[in-house]
Computed example of a mutant assay.
Amino acid sequence: MSSPPAPARLTDRKRAAILDAAVAEFRHAGYETTSMDRIAARAGVSKRTVYNHFPSKEALFAQILERLWDNSMDGLDLAYRGDRPLRPQLLELVQQKLRLLHDDNFVDLARVAIAAAIHSPERAQDMVARMGVREEGLTVWIRAAAADGRLKTDDPLFAAMQMQGLVKGFAFWPQITLGLPPLNAAQQKQVAESAVDMFLAYYAES
């Protein structure tokens, strides 16, 4: 198979540079202060080039959020296994979630996204919808375990939200809203194990 032409590769590199520059600017200055001029300067391209790829700051920010939510899916789609105990399966899902929440880039961008959403209810609704989609993997796992008769719930989405709350109450919201440091390894282990044990104590079929 022949290689793509050089201009296409250059265009892709410029787009990637713009996205990386935008991430850095949004993290450093926040949504309202960041400008397309600053992004262009950091990326080493003209402002026209930025607009050729992204028609507005809103569109560029939306693309960054898309990358953010895509990253949140990495490894979070473990399929339910009927031949394995529930606890290690659920613990693996939670531990992967904690690794994501420990990522500085994810935390910083999530903080920017939430701050931007305060000024735009429409953006907030879109962000919440995206987060719901990205966390669907846990809901799917719970739904499969319930269908297999191993969890007792007729509302997998509600159960998944409870589990997310148990984790994010320690490993997301304090860092986002209060600027607390990320959990260390021992704290992550404590949060994961206690959340899973509490969840299974209520939902697991005896």
Results as ranks from 00 to 15, higher is better:
residue 123 R to I: 07
residue 179 G to H: 08
residue 188 Q to S: 12
residue 121 P to W: 09
residue 184 N to D: 15
residue 182 P to V: 13
residue 206 S to G: 15
residue 29 A to L: 11
residue 195 A to I: 04
residue 183 L to H: 01
residue 160 A to N: 02
residue 204 A to K: 11
residue 123 R to D: 08
residue 95 Q to I: 13
residue 74 D to L: 15
residue 32 E to S: 13
residue 124 A to L: 15
residue 115 A to I: 07
residue 74 D to G: 05
residue 11 T to W: 04
residue 118 I to A: 12
residue 61 F to D: 00
residue 85 P to Y: 03
residue 159 A to K: 02
residue 50 V to L: 09
residue 148 D to P: 01
residue 206 S to L: 12
residue 31 Y to T: 06
residue 206 S to V: 13
residue 146 A to C: 08
residue 141 W to F: 13
residue 91 L to W: 01
residue 98 L to C: 05
residue 21 A to V: 06
residue 176 I to N: 06
residue 102 H to T: 11
residue 149 G to C: 03
residue 192 A to L: 06
residue 117 A to D: 11
residue 135 E to S: 12
residue 1 M to N: 09
residue 124 A to V: 05
residue 16 A to Y: 02
residue 44 G to Q: 07
residue 114 I to M: 07
residue 83 D to A: 09
residue 57 K to V: 06
residue 135 E to M: 11
residue 5 P to A: 12
residue 5 P to L: 06
residue 68 L to C: 05
residue 120 S to N: 15
residue 31 Y to G: 02
residue 175 Q to S: 13
residue 204 A to C: 10
residue 91 L to R: 07
residue 131 M to S: 10
residue 105 N to P: 06
residue 123 R to S: 05
residue 53 H to D: 07
residue 112 V to Y: 01
residue 174 P to F: 05
residue 31 Y to D: 04
residue 56 S to M: 04
residue 55 P to A: 08
residue 189 K to L: 11
residue 22 A to G: 09
residue 7 P to Y: 04
residue 40 A to F: 07
residue 57 K to M: 08
residue 2 S to C: 07
residue 161 M to G: 03
residue 60 L to P: 01
residue 42 R to N: 06
residue 187 Q to Y: 02
residue 74 D to F: 15
residue 104 D to T: 04
residue 202 Y to R: 14
residue 185 A to C: 04
residue 168 K to F: 07
residue 193 E to G: 01
residue 94 V to T: 03
residue 108 D to I: 00
residue 167 V to F: 01
residue 6 A to C: 07
residue 171 A to Y: 01
residue 176 I to V: 15
residue 89 Q to V: 13
residue 178 L to N: 08
residue 117 A to I: 07
residue 9 R to H: 10
residue 75 G to Q: 03
residue 58 E to R: 12
residue 133 V to M: 11
residue 132 G to V: 09
residue 67 R to S: 12
residue 155 D to N: 14
residue 54 F to W: 04
residue 98 L to P: 00
residue 176 I to H: 05
residue 106 F to I: 08
residue 32 E to M: 07
residue 190 Q to I: 12
residue 153 T to W: 09
residue 151 L to H: 00
residue 36 M to S: 10
residue 50 V to Y: 03
residue 184 N to V: 11
residue 63 Q to I: 00
residue 170 F to V: 02
residue 71 N to T: 06
residue 137 G to C: 03
residue 12 D to K: 10
residue 191 V to S: 01
residue 188 Q to K: 13
residue 142 I to P: 02
residue 125 Q to R: 14
residue 117 A to G: 15
residue 109 L to K: 07
residue 142 I to S: 00
residue 134 R to W: 05
residue 97 K to D: 11
residue 71 N to G: 15
residue 61 F to W: 10
residue 36 M to R: 04
residue 90 L to P: 02
residue 206 S to E: 14
residue 129 A to E: 12
residue 145 A to Y: 00
residue 38 R to W: 04
residue 46 S to T: 14
residue 197 D to F: 00
residue 191 V to N: 02
residue 22 A to T: 08
residue 110 A to Q: 09
residue 8 A to E: 14
residue 12 D to S: 13
residue 131 M to Y: 08
residue 98 L to I: 05
residue 136 E to Y: 05
residue 138 L to P: 03
residue 132 G to I: 05
residue 74 D to Y: 14
residue 180 L to W: 14
residue 7 P to S: 10
residue 183 L to S: 00
residue 2 S to H: 12
residue 12 D to L: 13
residue 12 D to M: 11
residue 100 L to S: 04
residue 64 I to Y: 02
residue 43 A to Y: 00
residue 119 H to V: 09
residue 146 A to L: 06
residue 116 A to F: 01
